[in-house]
Write a protein that binds this DNA or RNA. Structure first.
Lengths: 205, 205
DNA sequence: TAGATTGTTAATCGATTAACAATC
DNA sequence: TAGATTGTTAATCGATTAACAATC
């Protein structure tokens, strides 16, 4: 199976989330047109995306919800679970620790780190908070894959450095600033302000 | 000035944020190559993006930080300030209310709404929390542009409906579910789980 | 002048959409 | 059979990169 571009991966994850919702409502069949209505994407694009995997739809009928979900998951996630660690257990960090995302089984936040003495040792949503100095040790021990930066932007690069040092190859950065990391480390930036402003600019005219 | 595609808008906002940082460090000149190093984008792309505005760089020298920032802001944001309202003052909502984004002057969160009686009337970071029923009235009164959904996903569509009813044309949805709105309303979805998983899939191989 | 950097045009690449054949 | 829907191929569109001229 060839590697898919990021755009398609993101959409496929959206399909999986959507299919999960449909299953909860006991809708066992779904067409690309229905998926298009729910997701806001075009039905052609959805069929094209799905065709990257295997023929699974039936003309005139659509897709079996459960089968489609399983097919997409198998190709994309296989048997992997993503292990996440969080830097910064403040407001945003706590929100992330409690984020009610889909697919609990595939995504596991395994440890949090914070600089504040008062927070060390506490648990939020079952996840223990450790002092940042212990990050390398703990990250290696629990085989974390991805680090989340939710610290004040002054400590943003510091957190990134700890992550690189600990051998992480993926970082999701919620702080509104750029970080500098080796090329092998993938970074995804989530700056809320940029999102708000970009939507606003998009809306003009 | 022609409307720019969303991708370029988002990058230009990143340049503005970066230039703001450089100004704080008293770096009054910057080249596209330096911006490329900080942002992780290519210098050609940066020059191409900037060339959408006006000739402002000087060969051999680069750009005057302050001038470039001003030029980008003038074209993109003009004299506008974005007025935001928030639905849901839980963990994530509180984090958004306190988000230390750049450009305080251009982005203003003007009101928050929550269903919980205990939260009504309180202020977080100077923003008052109102009962959801008052949303249409307050949103109209304060000329809000964009609504932020940070409610539990069960109430996600409800919040969206309130926003549409109140005349908002832009929604940023942090809940992990799809919403259905009229075509004139622009939606931006931020599902953390999808971000984490998509980064993870991207990292494989 | 030589060298570095901008800004632009042309070429390439990738993603989306259109058209349509296949099929149930 | 007729109609709806999938899956695929070809055409279009947009974004990125390469090449290079302009300029300080």
């Amino acid at each position: 199976m060839k590697k898919l571009p990021r755009k398609i991966i993101t959409r496929v994850l959206l399909y999986i989330r959507t299919l999960e919702g449909l299953l909860k409502e006991k809708r066992y069949l779904v067409s690309s047109k229905q998926l298009a209505e729910i997701t806001g994407l075009s039905d052609v694009k959805i069929r094209k995306d799905i065709s990257n995997f295997k023929k699974i739809g039936r003309p005139r009928i659509g897709y079996k919800t459960a089968d489609l979900k399983k097919t997409l998951e198998n190709y994309l996630l296989q048997n992997n679970t993503v292990h996440l660690v969080l830097f910064g257990a403040g407001n945003l960090g706590s929100a992330i620790l409690k984020y009610p995302g889909f697919h609990r089984s595939k995504v596991k936040l395994v440890a949090a780190f914070d600089a504040a003495k008062t927070k060390i040792g506490r648990k939020i949503n079952g996840v223990r908070i450790y002092p940042v100095e212990r990050a390398p040790e703990i990250i290696k021990r629990c085989h974390a894959d991805i680090g989340i930066i939710a610290v004040p932007k002054e400590h943003c690069q510091e957190a990134a450095d700890y992550m690189v040092l600990s051998g992480l190859h993926g970082i999701v950065n919620f702080a509104p600033c750029s970080i500098s990391v080796p090329a092998k480390v993938q970074v995804r930036n989530m700056d809320f302000t940029i999102e708000f402003l970009s939507l606003f600019c998009d809306m003009q005219k």
